[in-house]
Amino acid sequence: MSMAVSEQALDRVIDEMIEVVENSKDEIFHISEAARTEYEQLVIELEITKKKVLEYIEMGDELEDRVRKSRKQLALVSKNFDKYSEEEIHDVYEKTHDLQTRLIMVRNREKAMRDKRDDIDRRLQSLSKTIERAEGLANKISVIHTYLQDDFQQVNEILENAKEKQEFGLKIIEAQEEERRKISREIHDGPAQMLANILLRSEIIEKTYRKGDMEKAIEELKDVRRMARSSLYEVRRIIYDLRPMALDDLGLVPTIKKYIDTTADYHKMDIDFTIIGKDSRLQHKYEIALFRLMQEALQNAIKHSQASKIQVKLEINCQHVILIVKDNGIGFDPSLKQQDKSFGLIGMKERVEMLKGTMNIQSDYGQGTTVTIKVPFNPSS
């Protein structure tokens, strides 16, 4: 009877997981569609900006020709000063000065349009990658959804204890929901607030411009530009936490360096990174696993250790990859942590076991914590 009740509980957990996966798929679809819409709008804006750049180039070239001719006239007047009246001389000087001023303004506008064009082009490239990754993630979630619906029912035959089955499913759901809450909170407190502020400041700029106070409008525009840059930084940081693109492009060591630098700056902490051995690309499965292990261990140290200094060391040799994350924090009893069934440590242990490696945690109250991960590695395989 108890086993039947446990199996029913697991079935409910599986149903909830399927619902979560379906909702995640819908959310990713909406994100992808929003990115596509923004991409299409930016394509139109890019074409308009390119036309304006060409217009300003033509205007500038025309003005340069007129300035050249005016300078010749000015040189002629200066050479034959006695042959012209004071009014004629004054007119030539004024005309030349006016043309030069207009030329400077046009060239400045041309530069602004060029900068805008380049910025839009960069945003298009970023959005293109976002759309591509969203589509890839949607495909992966579809596979997971199919697996949950068709194959996961067989877990009942594999797992022996129904209570462990239920806890396992609930832990996955809790981790998903916690990650969602974290991302939602970061977006709400960061980019969303900044974008709302940018919208408000843009209205102020419009009102200031209509009043004719150009200097104040320019200052406000500079502030908006700074806010937009900060918002872009926050968005990139959130995306980097989800999946650092540098891992695919540059490899493990540069990505860890960048992540540690960004994390240290964000949390105002002293985090030291040391690499021993050859800094070379590893197989994809090693790079992903080792980066996530480092990320989890580092975040645990930041959140729980109350440390003032954290050391991260990565050693790559011909037989092993060794990752060490050490802090000088308050420490803890590892046996008690294992009894609590910490989901973070369970996830780390599973990643290490998948690579046929070992993980050792040394810690005690007031003695800090050292996490040592050793993974067998063959560079030629």
Score class of each variant (00 low, 15 high):
residue 284 H to F: 03
residue 56 Y to I: 03
residue 11 D to I: 03
residue 133 R to C: 01
residue 231 S to L: 03
residue 54 L to C: 01
residue 114 R to T: 12
residue 312 V to G: 04
residue 120 I to R: 08
residue 350 E to A: 13
residue 33 E to R: 14
residue 253 V to K: 06
residue 290 L to D: 00
residue 53 V to Y: 11
residue 264 A to R: 04
residue 362 Q to S: 13
residue 299 Q to R: 14
residue 289 A to W: 02
residue 136 G to A: 05
residue 363 S to K: 05
residue 65 D to K: 15
residue 355 L to C: 05
residue 349 K to H: 06
residue 20 V to E: 09
residue 305 S to F: 05
residue 151 D to G: 03
residue 215 E to R: 14
residue 311 Q to W: 07
residue 26 D to G: 07
residue 379 P to K: 05
residue 174 E to C: 00
residue 104 I to Y: 15
residue 337 K to H: 04
residue 79 K to M: 10
residue 246 A to V: 04
residue 281 R to M: 11
residue 59 M to F: 07
residue 293 L to G: 09
residue 122 R to M: 09
residue 299 Q to C: 02
residue 279 D to Y: 01
residue 130 T to P: 01
residue 22 E to A: 11
residue 85 S to E: 04
residue 359 M to Y: 11
residue 51 K to F: 08
residue 248 D to W: 03
residue 243 R to F: 05
residue 289 A to C: 06
residue 171 K to M: 12
residue 32 S to R: 06
residue 293 L to T: 11
residue 194 M to P: 01
residue 155 V to K: 08
residue 297 A to Y: 00
residue 79 K to D: 08
residue 262 T to V: 12
residue 181 R to L: 13
residue 75 A to W: 05
residue 365 Y to V: 14
residue 218 I to M: 08
residue 15 D to C: 08
residue 264 A to I: 00
residue 334 P to H: 07
residue 92 V to S: 01
residue 115 D to L: 09
residue 11 D to P: 00
residue 39 Y to I: 00
residue 35 A to R: 02
residue 8 Q to N: 07
residue 223 D to M: 07
residue 96 T to V: 01
residue 225 R to C: 07
residue 23 N to F: 08
residue 338 Q to M: 11
residue 71 R to W: 05
residue 65 D to M: 13
residue 325 V to P: 01
residue 188 H to W: 02
residue 204 I to V: 10
residue 339 Q to K: 15
residue 5 V to T: 14
residue 220 E to C: 00
residue 62 E to T: 10
residue 381 S to H: 09
residue 142 S to E: 14
residue 45 E to L: 11
residue 292 R to F: 08
residue 232 L to H: 15
residue 103 L to N: 07
residue 40 E to I: 13
residue 247 L to P: 09
residue 276 I to R: 10
residue 47 E to V: 03
residue 232 L to P: 05
residue 241 D to C: 06
residue 322 I to T: 12
residue 321 V to P: 08
residue 189 D to F: 03
residue 198 I to T: 04
residue 381 S to A: 12
residue 131 I to W: 01
residue 274 T to Y: 06
residue 20 V to R: 06
residue 80 N to P: 02
residue 142 S to R: 10
residue 169 G to N: 04
residue 161 N to V: 13
residue 132 E to D: 11
residue 138 A to I: 07
residue 352 V to A: 00
residue 6 S to Y: 14
residue 226 R to V: 03
residue 200 L to T: 10
residue 205 I to K: 08
residue 340 D to M: 10
residue 337 K to V: 10
residue 172 I to F: 14
residue 129 K to C: 02
